[in-house]
Design a protein around this nucleic acid. Sequence first.
RNA 1: GGAGAGGUGACAGAGUCUGGUCGAAUGUGCUUCCCUGCUAAGGAAGUGACUGCUCACGCGGUCCGUGGGUUCAAAUCCCACCCUCUCCGCCA
Length: 419
Amino acid sequence: MIDLRRLREENAYRAGAEKKGVEPSLIEATLDADERRRTAMHAAEEARAAQNLASKEIGRADPSDRESKIAEASRLKAELEKLEDAEAEAVSEVEELALQIPNPADESVPHGDENDFITEKEVGEQTAARNYDHAELGELLGLVDGERAVKNSGSRFAYLMGPAVRLEFALVQFAFDILEKHNFVPVVPPVLVREEMMIDAGFFPTDRHQVYEIAGDDLFLIGTSEVALAGLHRGEHLDRESLPVRYAGFSSCFRREAGTYGKDTRGIFRVHQFDKVEMFSFCDPDVSWDELETLRSLQEEIVASLELPYRVINVASGDLGAAAAKKYDLEVWLPSEGAYREVTSCSNYTDYSARRMSSRYRDSEGSGLLHTLNGTACAISRTLVFLMENGQQDDGSVVIPDALRPYVGFDSIPGPDHS
RNA sequence: GGAGAGGUGACAGAGUCUGGUCGAAUGUGCUUCCCUGCUAAGGAAGUGACUGCUCACGCGGUCCGUGGGUUCAAAUCCCACCCUCUCCGCCA
C-alpha cells in the first residue's frame, strides 16, 4: 500500500510511481478522492464526538430528563449515520484507487520495460553449448524423470532422483551455512496460507491466477516462502536496536505458471513445484538500501561459489512489479540457449508491504514502519539446470563445484555412457 | 471429528450475569524524581497503539480475538468466523 501523504506532498515520490507507468490521471483521481475522504472523515468525526457526548450525558442524567435526552441523541445519531455512509463510501473509493498504485521506483532504477535494464556487472565466461542441454542430460543421467511425472501429475512436474536429490540437500545446507553467518534465522514455514495472508503479502488480487487453491479449505499454496515469512511479524513492533531481523526460509514453492504455455517447456527450468531457500529481512528504514546491497552480495557469493558465469542487472521500472522499489536480478549463462537466464532476484519493498502488514519498529522516539526486503538464496531446480550445463564435460559427466563437494560427497556425476 | 472452557493493555489479572461516569481496577514491569556508603527495600509521579486537525500547547476519532447485528449507549447482549486450552476419539 502506497503512502498517500507522501504521494500528495513529495514530488519525487509521485514521480517514482509515474516512472512505473502509472497514469498521472490515476494519481490525480486518487488524491482527489483522498481529499474528499479527509473532508468526509472530519465531518463524521465531529458528528460522532457530539453523539458520544450526548449519549454519555444520558447515563449521568436525572431519570426525569432521560427521555428528552434520548430523543436528542437519536436525532444526532440519524445525522451521524448519513455522514458515516459518506465517509465509508469515500474510504472505499480511495482504497480502490490507491491499491492500483504501485510502490514508486527508486531514482536509481532505469526507465523502461524488461529490455531496458542496466547491467551492473558481468562475471565469468559465456561458453558455447555442450553436447547435451539440461533437459536431455537430466534424463540421461537419471537426475530427472519428467515423463513419469507427466503421467501422475501432468506437465511441468518432475521427479528429482538420485544424485539430483543429494545435490538439492547439499545446496540447501551450503546456502544455510552462508546465511547463518549473516544472522539469518533458518525457517521452514507453512506452505499453505489463508487468503488474508496472500492479500497482505501483496500477491492477491494481482497474481491470484498464479496460485493454487485448496478446494474446501480456504487455503492457498505459497508460490514462495516470502509469503509466509512476510507474515512473521504482522501487527508487531520490533525493537529498533534488534534490526535487521533476517530469516532464511526453505520451502517448496507452487506456481500455476498460467500464461506461459510453450515457454521453457524443456526440463525443470520452469515447473509447478520446486524448492527454494529464500532470504527475508525486516529492516530499519534508514538503511534498507544498504540491506539490498547485502542481499545482492550474498546472492553473488552463492552463485560465484558454484562457479557459474553470471551478470547482475538493475531491473527497469516497468518490470519491477507492484511492490518493489528496486530489484536486482542475477542471471546465469545458459550455454544451450546462448543467453543469460534468471536464477535469483532481490528486491527492496520499502514500506509498501509493511504498511499493510502493520510491521513496525519501536525506539525511544516512537515508532514507524519497517522496510522489508527479500531475495532468493538458492532456487534448487534452476540451479540444477545451470550446474548441469555449465559443469558438463565432453563425455556428458558433470563436475561438482569445489564449494559443494564437502556437502554432496562426490566430485562429479558420471556421464551417460559410463556404465 | 465429539464434549467443555476461554480469548481484555508489555505481562499477570478484574470487569461480562445486572449495558451508561470503563481506554479499562489491581499487581508486576518500565521511566523520572526522593531517600540511601553501594545494592536491595521504601516513598512520589508518570507509563498503550493507530489515526485526523494544529508551528505548537492541545482537541478529536478508532481499538477489550476478527467481522457483522441490537441500542441513544456494548469489553459487557445477539449471530458468524478465527484461535487457544482441557477431556475423548483418530493419526505420521
